[in-house]
Amino acid sequence: MQNFKFIRPENLDQACRILSENRGKVKILAGGTDVMIEMRDDKLPPSIEMVMEISHLEELRFIEDDGKNIRIGAATTHAEVAESELIRKNAPLLAEAAATVGSPQIRNRGTVAGNSITASPAADTIPPLLVLDATVVLRRGTEKREVPLRDIFTGPNQTNIGNDELVTEIYFEKLPDDTRTAFIKLARRNSAAKSRMNFAARARQNDAGEVIELRISAGSVTPSPARFNAAENILLGKIPSESLLKEAGEAVSGDMIRQSGYRWSTDYKKPVVESLTVRVLEEVLTIY
């Protein structure tokens, strides 16, 4: 394994200071479920001189309700999110997604923030967080910056988070009471499997049955995590019918093919993507 200095800051301020003073030389370590594998394969960039642990920082370990938003500290694990009453009540789709990540051992270490900022197309918690319109809070030195999660992804496994920035929390607004949400993941549970498709959605309908709010996102479908606006627009303002759901499914597979190109796997993925879209929509919409 590569050599480095190990740093265990006493608090968040110190962590941010170290990061600013050693720009580009510090690798941040929280759950370690990805970073440890990078290290093992000697894939840390050669500029890295120190590894800074943050998982012990209590300031980054919380799940709280500030009245308007639900806030999740950056060192909070998948298991903590999956077990949290607050998350289960306010964002059941995120609790379910967190409960399907990796294995119990991985969920006990890996963090939702870490999983989400990998920008991996296969990260299970990204689609629910995109559907929740989550915001990422970052610190650079003493400055704080907030960015919508969808704006941090610049490509597969790439984000625009600076190498002197630390993610401190992710938050999202509590959903209106009449919102329905769903998360589904393809195929049976298999701890080791990483890249299985998953779908997340949230929706509201008015008394007439018209869709007044809809968000759909999926993992392992497009090269980088995204919402499917074309599919959402097909249903917005309409009273959902089986044929509209089918159309929405085709819009999602259309987006996939536009972004990923037609690949060897497309013939298999296209019908699966379409039927999973229909399924997730059936869970959040009343169909007439």
Binding site: F6, G32, T33, M36, V51, E53, G102, Q105, R109, S191
Partner: peptide, 25 residues
């Protein structure tokens, strides 16, 4: 690499893969 669980130990009461935990942690 965190996939087989042969290295499982309890850390603060929870199961973890000790191959994915850095000494200092």
């Amino acid at each position: 690499i965190g996939e087989c669980g042969a290295c499982t130990v309890l850390l603060n009461g929870r199961t973890v893969n000790s191959c994915l935990i850095l000494a200092g942690q």
